[in-house]
Every structure is written in C-alpha cells, then in structure tokens.
Design a protein around this nucleic acid. Structure first.
Lengths: 225, 225
DNA sequence: TTTAAATAATAGTAATACTATCATAAAAAA
DNA sequence: TTTTTTATGATAGTATTACTATTATTTAAA
C-alpha cells in the first residue's frame, strides 16, 4: 500500500488529462527532463515525442502547445509547494517560526519525494527557478489569468501573506512582501549560480546564505512595524 | 546645437553597429515598438523588416538573432539608467537620500528623453519590465556572461550596492539587496498591472506605492544594522 | 463480442529562423 | 574623377518549428 497524493489541475490547462494515462505521465516526466536539460526555448514537442517514443501528434492530444505545458508544470509545482508548506508548518503556533520554515522551503533545493513517480520535484524546482517567470511574462497573461491558470501561485502568495500578517498585523505590504520572498528565493539562486556578482553569495554558493538574506530582509521589516 | 549622449555598446552584441547608420537606428526604433506591442515571443525579424520597409536579410546584417537584439536593448537600458542615476544623484551627500532617489528612478515610468531620437526610453522601460529577465533566463547565460553582455546590469547593481554600504557599512547583503530592489521595482509593477493579487497595490495601481514598499523594505533593513 | 476510446503512423501546411547570391546605390579612397 | 569599398535591396532557398488532419491499429469498456 502506498499513499498517493493526487493534485487536481485546472482543466483548461490541458486537452486530455496527462495524469490519466501512461502516455500522459510520460509527457510530464520527459518534459521535465527535457526542459531541464535543454531549456524552455530549445524544448519542442517533436524532441519530446522522440524522447518518449511517440509522435508529435500524440503530445498535441494532451497539450495545446508548449506554453500551456509550462504553465501546467509551474501550476503543479505551486500546488505541491503549498502542500509541502502546510505539511511542514502544521502545528507550529509561532508565526515567525512558520514564516522561517516557509522561507527555508522556498529557498532549498527539494529532494524528489517519490510520492509522484512521474514528477521529479527536484528537477521541477530547477525549472521553476530558470523558466518559471516565463509562464506569466507574456502578452497572454491577462487571458491566462482570467482562466485561473495562476491561481496556485496566487494562493501560495496569499498563504504567505497571511503568515506575514500574523507576525505583524500592522505591516502594510503583506502580499508584495510575499511575492518578493517567492521571487527572490528563486532569482537569488539563479544569480548565485549564473551571475554571481549580483549577489553576496558568489563565493560559497550556499543556499543557506540566501535563506539568511531573506530572513534578515523579512524580519527586520516585520519587527519594525 | 544639441548635446547627444552616445552610449558605446559591447561589440560582440551586434554584427554591424546599429547606431552607425539610418537602417541600424530604424532597427532599434522599430524593434522597441514591435516588442512592446507584440511581446518578445511573437516578435520576428520578418515582421520587423516589413515594419521598417527593408528585408529580413537586412536585419540579420546587424543582429545575429532576436536574442542578441534583446540583450542589446536591455544592456542599453541599464547603461542609460546608470547615467540617469548618476546624473540625478550627483551632489547629493546623504546616501539615504541618494538611495531613495535611486528607488524612485527604478520604479518610475520614464518619459522619453528626446536625447536619443531612435530610442523611446518610455517604451523600452516597459519592455524591460515584461521581457528583461528573458535576456538572462536562458541556457546560454554562462556564455553570454563570459562575453560581458550583462556588465551594464552588474555595474548598476554594484553602484546601488555601494550606496547601500554608504548608508549602512555593516549591512551584510548589499549586492543581493541591490538586485532585489532592481528586480522588484519591475516585478511589482508587472504584478500590479497584470496579476494584482500578488501585490498590495491592485486597487490604486500607483507607482508611488511600489516606491513606498521598496523604501520601507530597504530602510528598515538598513536602519537595523 | 461489440463498441468506443486512445494511440501510432503518416502526411501535409504555414511560419520561423536562418544563409547565400547577386545587383545596385552610395560613400570613401585613390 | 575614377576606382574601390561598403551598405543596402531583391530574391531564393533550406531546415526546423508549430501545428492540423486522416487513417489504421491497439486497448479497454460496455
């Protein structure tokens, strides 16, 4: 027996539910590997099909295009991460301890959790760092938003915003601080590894330093107010 | 007579210097308009050529591909912004006043300054907000960085980092805070206008609120240390 | 056992991202 | 002024991408 956590995704993100078949699961699994290896720009459905051993048309039955697939993967990640957060902060009363835990979860490379065999959370985390913003930095962001594609991201942001308010009820920018924490947990990681002079962690390249930076940033802001 | 400020760009960014000819200047001018209107993904050299009234091959004589053109535009913007910052903070002794001025310049929509007829700084600022990260969020970031394509961005970050240190010599994360300010000045703007629930400014959509948020974030961090 | 649904195999199209060639016009050097 | 260089325009062509459509075959459900 095995506990399987099933994430229900927005139906408008796919044509056929990829979690409902072997081919679908292979699409998720191999797209994560391919995007991770080649980057989103070089990633094509043709290469993905070859990788899986199916045809291009086969992929198109599941996803309209690669943008939708990226949005699907990012949405999946945010849902998963919100679950991780609620799991790991459960029963912690002190909101500052909870917020610290959140920052750590955001900024730490995840280990593949084996619960979902076809999603490698560790690779997916790396994809979110390097490609995640491309899901919304488009001309269709308004359309996509209307279809609720970014709800998981917004939900996570709201959760973190609420913890911030618990820490400091008078703080004026809980949501902006929440989105800042999320984005910076990823960007500082990308910068540290690729453009190190944009950070103070170029020497050590330690995630723990990003966590320390974010903790300092957040808790001095909250202590004051 | 007119004072013309000439920005010297990294030669590896182009095949032929676009500032050296009418066609080149047209490429810059129209690419800014097109990327602004259609977004970077939908932007092609063919459309650009049609817009200008030249041929695709004509564009390729100046830029190797559209990625290089985007990197060129972003690099140009950061050089220009650093000049704006040094101009507007000149003779201000108090580093906190200077840092506030910097935050304001980063977060404020610029007016087209007419000094450079073929570059519309206002549109370019919007492009940087929506497309700027795509210049470095690629698999080639390492290669591009070796060729110094991101030097203007890093220089600006260093300048801001130094002002931060002047404000607060013991602060431990000047460069990370600088890159956070730069990125968040843009991302909070994008979120405010496109995914407002990720911010606290969805109602008013005022840039002044972003500035207030960043000031609060930065100066509580610096006051403490 | 029939019927429906999913997949594989194949083909085809329009657009994208280029490269190459040659003629001509304009500007710089001789 | 003539020659030579350099930039542009016009045209063509290729490989890849981003799809859509059709039909046959396999698998699973009724």
């Amino acid at each position: 027996m095995k506990l399987q956590l099933q994430i229900t995704m927005n139906e408008a993100l796919f044509l056929r539910n990829p979690e409902s078949s072997e081919l679908g699961k292979n699409i998720l699994k191999h797209s994560i590997q391919l995007i991770y290896k080649a980057g989103f720009e070089a990633f094509t459905f043709k290469k993905l099909a070859e990788d899986i051993g199916t045809t291009e048309a086969g992929i198109y039955r599941y996803f309209e295009n690669k943008h939708k697939l990226l949005v699907y993967l990012t949405a999946w990640y945010w849902v998963w991460l919100e679950f991780q957060i609620s799991f790991h902060t459960n029963n912690i009363k002190d909101p500052t301890v909870r917020l610290k835990r959140v920052i750590k979860l955001l900024a730490t490379a995840v280990e593949d959790d084996e619960q979902t065999s076809y999603i490698n959370e560790s690779l997916l985390h790396q994809i979110i760092i390097a490609e995640g913003s491309k899901a919304y930095l488009t001309k269709q962001v308004g359309e996509d938003n209307k279809q609720q594609f970014f709800k998981p991201y917004k939900d996570l942001c709201a959760v973190i915003g609420n913890i911030i308010l618990e820490c400091s009820p008078k703080y004026k920018y809980p949501k902006s601080l929440a989105s800042t924490i999320i984005e910076m947990a990823h960007f500082q990681n990308f910068f540290m590894n690729n453009l190190p002079s944009l950070t103070d962690f170029g020497k050590t390249k330690e995630e723990s330093e990003i966590i320390a930076f974010l903790n300092d940033l957040v808790f001095t802001s909250l202590k004051k107010s």
